[in-house]
Structures are given as C-alpha cells and as structure tokens.
Amino acid sequence: MKQYFAILAVFFLSLLLFKNSEADLQCNDVLKDLTPCVSYLTSGSGSPSTACCNGVTTLASAASTTADRRAACSCIMSAVSKVNPSPKATKALPGSCNITFPFTVSPNVDCSKIS
C-alpha cells in the first residue's frame, strides 16, 4: 500500500513539473486517466481494471492532435522514469484494453518525433 501511495505522489508531483502551452491535453488529465492503471503496471501481471481501460480509452481519444500526443508522451515518459512500471505490462496495456494507442511507451521513444 505504501508503494501505491508513493507512485501516486510521483504522479502528482509530475503534474507540477510538466506544462505544455501548445497542447490542449494537460499532464494532469493524462495522469488522472492513467492513475487507475498503477497497480496493473507496477505488478506486471493480471489484467487491467475496467477503470484503467476506461482511462486509457479516454486518453487515446483525447490525444487527437500531434501536440496532444507529444504532450501525453512527455507526461507519461516523465512518470515512467520515476515509477518504473513493468515493460511487459506497459506494452500489453493498449491491447489488453482493446484499443490502439498513438505511440509505444518505451525507454527509447522520442516524444518530439510523434506525429
């Protein structure tokens, strides 16, 4: 339980650190959508919850412009660098929720190249 609260704290700290004036999609929206996925992403096993899949679906729909996709990517990558989720769960999340996400979350992604 302590780890869960630590992860949430990192997410909320990321809110304060990230702002993107070009995008309509803000980091706090991205993190709010993904917060229900924390336990799935850190455990690396099981299935994502309905709330998690709803959040991922909302985020994928909201990231409709290049600026929004880049903003979402930057926010996610900032949180990932602090939380260290399971790479397997991170890669599986969109497919587990039956959606296509506009980019792959991986350590090598360059958010500035997302179109």
Rank of each mutant, 00 (worst) to 15 (best):
K2R: 13
K2Q: 14
K2M: 10
Y4M: 09
Y4K: 09
Y4H: 09
A9E: 12
V10T: 13
L13V: 10
S14R: 12
L16Y: 07
L16Q: 11
L17H: 11
K19E: 12
K19P: 00
K19L: 09
N20A: 04
E22L: 13
L25D: 01
V30W: 01
L31N: 14
K32R: 14
K32V: 08
D33Q: 10
D33R: 05
L34S: 09
L34W: 09
T35W: 05
P36S: 07
V38Q: 05
S39D: 12
S39L: 11
G44Y: 05
S45M: 04
G46H: 03
S47C: 00
S49W: 06
S49F: 06
A51Y: 00
C52N: 10
C52W: 11
N54M: 10
G55Y: 06
T57G: 13
T57A: 15
T57P: 02
T58V: 00
L59D: 04
L59H: 03
S61R: 13
S61C: 01
A62S: 15
A63N: 00
S64P: 01
S64L: 07
D68H: 05
D68W: 03
D68C: 01
R70L: 03
A71L: 07
A72K: 02
C73R: 02
S74A: 14
S74L: 08
I76G: 01
A79P: 06
V80T: 10
V80F: 05
K82G: 13
V83E: 01
N84G: 00
S86K: 06
A92S: 14
S96C: 00
S96T: 03
C97K: 02
N98C: 07
T100H: 12
F101H: 04
P102M: 01
F103H: 05
T104C: 01
P107Y: 05
N108E: 11
D110C: 04
D110Q: 12
D110N: 15
C111M: 02
K113N: 10
K113R: 11
I114E: 03
S115C: 00
